[in-house]
Amino acid sequence: MNFIHPRKGRRSLKQMIMDIQAYVHEDTDASYKVVIGTDSQTREKETIFVTALIIQRIGKGAIFFYTKYRHKAIRNLRYRIYQETEYSLEAVELLKKKGFFDFSVNIPMEIHLDIGQQGETRKLIQEVVGWVTAVGYTAKIKPESYAASAVADRFTK
């Protein structure tokens, strides 16, 4: 799986992890947070999913990477939201499998969901947030879910 850094371009998973470790080691006194979120955009023939991975240096900026997936058009909102959530959780599992959290277990992580109290997605809040918290992660919804609703959304267009 390849990720994209806005300035460095395509990065392998290994390169991305090395970039993140270097970023964290630049300021070891800072506090960090890992945020993962996925958004999607359905066009006539396809749905594009974008998963964003943000490493936030609390109060001092952030770096981010993203990856894209293309699917046949998905018109069902519930299925699309479930797929977004699955991609975010898969990204976490991939990072774990590649030893991402071995270098710093103390970095908290959030999964940002592109759902909120407004609109059709409000009906999905309980079940999707329940899914994320059941597997052990903190879930954030709009307006706090900037990884999905701002960063990932930007690259679905």
Rank of each mutant, 00 (worst) to 15 (best):
E46Y: 12
S31A: 06
K72C: 10
V128N: 01
A52R: 00
N76C: 13
F49D: 00
F103R: 10
V151F: 03
T156G: 15
A148M: 12
A52N: 03
G119S: 08
T138H: 10
V92W: 01
I107A: 09
T138K: 13
G119Q: 08
V50C: 07
S149E: 07
T133H: 06
S149D: 13
T28F: 04
Y87H: 13
S40V: 00
T38H: 01
F49M: 15
M16R: 05
A147N: 07
K33T: 06
I81E: 01
T67K: 12
N106F: 14
W131V: 14
V132Y: 01
V34P: 00
S145F: 05
R43G: 12
G119T: 15
A152R: 01
A150H: 11
K96A: 07
A148Q: 05
E144A: 07
G116H: 06
S104C: 10
I55D: 00
F49E: 01
K14Q: 11
G119P: 13
K68Y: 04
Y82H: 14
D114R: 04
Y69P: 01
Q56N: 08
V135F: 07
F100C: 12
T28L: 15
S12C: 09
R57H: 02
M109T: 11
K98C: 08
H71A: 10
P6N: 09
A148L: 10
Y23K: 10
Q41R: 13
I55M: 15
T133Q: 11
K33R: 09
S40N: 14
H112E: 02
I115M: 05
Q83C: 07
A73L: 14
K14T: 06
F101N: 05
L94V: 05
E26S: 12
G99E: 02
S145Q: 08
G99R: 07
Q15K: 14
F64S: 10
K68L: 13
E144G: 08
F103G: 10
D102E: 11
M18K: 12
Q21F: 11
G61L: 04
K72W: 14
R7W: 14
I20N: 01
Q56S: 04
Y79S: 03
G116Y: 03
F65R: 04
K97F: 09
L124E: 07
R57P: 07
K157H: 04
N106V: 03
R154I: 15
D114E: 07
F100G: 08
I74M: 13
R122D: 10
W131P: 04
V132K: 03
G130K: 13
V151K: 00
I107P: 02
Q41E: 12
G119K: 14
I74S: 00
R122F: 13
P6T: 10
T38N: 02
T42C: 05
Y23R: 05
G9H: 06
K45T: 11
I141K: 01
I36M: 08
F101I: 12
L113H: 01
Q21H: 09
N76V: 11
R70T: 12
S149N: 13
K96R: 04
L89Q: 10
G136F: 09
T121C: 06
V151L: 02
G116Q: 09
K60D: 14
I141Q: 03
